[in-house]
Computed example of a mutant assay.
Amino acid sequence: MVDLHIWHRTLYRYRHPVSLGPHRLMLRPRENRDVRLVNSNVALSPDARLSWANDVFGNAVAIATFSQLSDTLVVDSIAQVELSAAAYPVFDIAASAASYPFRYSDDEWADLGLLTVQQYPDNGGLRAWARSFVAGNPTDTLSLLQDLNTGVAQNIVYWAREDEGTQSPSQTLSSAQGSCRDLATLFVEAVRSLGFGARIVSGYLHDPSRTLVGSADAGSTHAWAEVYVPGAGWITFDPTNRSMGSANLIPVAVARDIRQAMPVAGSFFGATNAFLSMSVEVSVTSR
Results as ranks from 00 to 15, higher is better:
P29T: 03
P29M: 04
E31T: 11
N32S: 12
R33C: 10
R33N: 10
D34Q: 04
R36T: 12
L37T: 05
L37W: 02
N39T: 09
S40Q: 06
A43S: 14
L44G: 03
S45H: 08
D47Q: 13
D47F: 12
L50R: 00
S51G: 03
S51D: 11
W52A: 13
W52M: 11
V56T: 09
V56P: 01
V56K: 00
G58Q: 00
A60P: 00
A60T: 11
V61M: 06
V61R: 00
V61P: 03
V61N: 02
A62G: 04
A62H: 01
I63H: 09
A64M: 09
T65N: 10
T65P: 03
T65I: 11
F66P: 05
F66Y: 12
S67I: 03
L69H: 08
L69R: 15
D71F: 06
D71S: 15
D71M: 11
D71N: 15
T72C: 07
V74P: 01
V75T: 10
V75G: 05
V75W: 00
D76W: 02
D76C: 04
S77N: 13
S77D: 02
I78T: 14
A79W: 01
Q80C: 10
V81D: 00
V81P: 07
V81L: 07
V81G: 05
E82R: 15
L83P: 02
L83N: 01
S84G: 12
A86P: 05
A86Y: 06
P89V: 07
V90I: 11
V90S: 13
F91E: 11
F91G: 07
D92N: 15
I93D: 03
I93P: 08
A95S: 13
A95T: 12
A95E: 14
S96R: 15
S96L: 05
A97M: 03
A97P: 06
A98P: 02
A98L: 07
Y100C: 06
P101A: 08
R103M: 08
Y104E: 09
Y104Q: 10
S105V: 09
S105I: 10
S105Q: 11
D106A: 15
D107F: 11
D107H: 10
E108N: 08
W109L: 13
W109M: 13
D111H: 09
L112S: 04
G113D: 15
L114S: 09
L114G: 06
L115C: 05
L115P: 04
T116N: 06
T116D: 02
V117F: 09
V117N: 03
Q118M: 15
Q119E: 11
Q119H: 12
Y120D: 05
P121A: 14
P121Q: 09
